[in-house]
């Protein structure tokens, strides 16, 4: 004769689960880490002179300790920095005011004109981090828009929507993010 097994009281199960839940809520974080990814240049070799770059190929951006911008020797504004960078890095054939153009053979897209332009960014030790990020962001936006333009022209899609790695690489090759960061100066003090 089988005896009836008494049912286990599961009423407190919910409480136990709640405790666990609260423990995990407290000890874990949900924040997704987002940020601007950059690759630092390797340290300079003191014996090797830095390569000479023609003046017309450089766009100099200076940020001082008051967070003011100086673009190629003229006071600049963060709001139109992106447009200026885009304009500078765009292809302007036979225009001595813009960087030189080099024809390059790139896989997937064939022969395209590429610019020799370089953005040179220099900041003061007193520049605020917020301003620095703003400038980096504007630069990144300018390059992304240029890449989008080329990508739309060649592949009919925006750069971020490209599926094939080869296509992405080709676009990256045609429009590399050429931002050079000069060693900072301490002019404005703290």
């Amino acid at each position: 004769m089988a005896r009836k097994v008494p049912e286990v009281n599961a009423g407190s199960m919910a409480d136990i689960a709640f405790l666990l839940l609260i423990f995990f809520l407290v000890t874990t974080t949900m924040d997704v880490d987002t940020g601007i990814i950059r690759v630092l240049p390797p340290p300079l070799d003191k014996n090797v002179d830095p390569p000479k770059v023609k003046d017309r190929n450089i766009m100099k951006i200076l940020v001082n300790s008051r967070d003011r911008l100086l673009i190629n020797g003229e006071p600049g504004n963060i709001n139109n920095l992106k447009e200026k960078v885009k304009d500078f890095m765009d292809i302007h054939p036979d225009n001595p005011n813009y960087p030189e153009i080099k024809m390059e053979q790139i896989e997937m897209i064939g022969e395209v004109p590429t610019t020799k332009g370089i953005i040179s960014l220099k900041n003061d030790r007193g520049t605020s981090y917020k301003m620095y990020i703003n400038v980096q962001d504007e630069l990144a936006a300018a390059f992304r828009e240029l890449r989008d333009n080329l990508s739309l022209e060649k592949f009919g899609r925006k750069y971020d929507d490209l599926v094939l790695e080869e296509q992405k690489e080709a676009i990256e090759k045609a429009i590399p993010i050429r931002v050079s960061e000069a060693e900072p100066e301490d002019v404005g003090g703290k």
């Binding site: 880490d33 987002t34 940020g35 601007i36 990814i37 690759v39 390797p42 980096q136």
Partner: peptide, 15 residues
């Protein structure tokens, strides 16, 4: 970071 060769960096920012 440059000296020790940790070149890949990420400036953490909000979107």
């Amino acid at each position: 970071l440059r000296k020790v060769g940790a070149f890949k960096i990420n400036y953490s920012t909000k979107k």
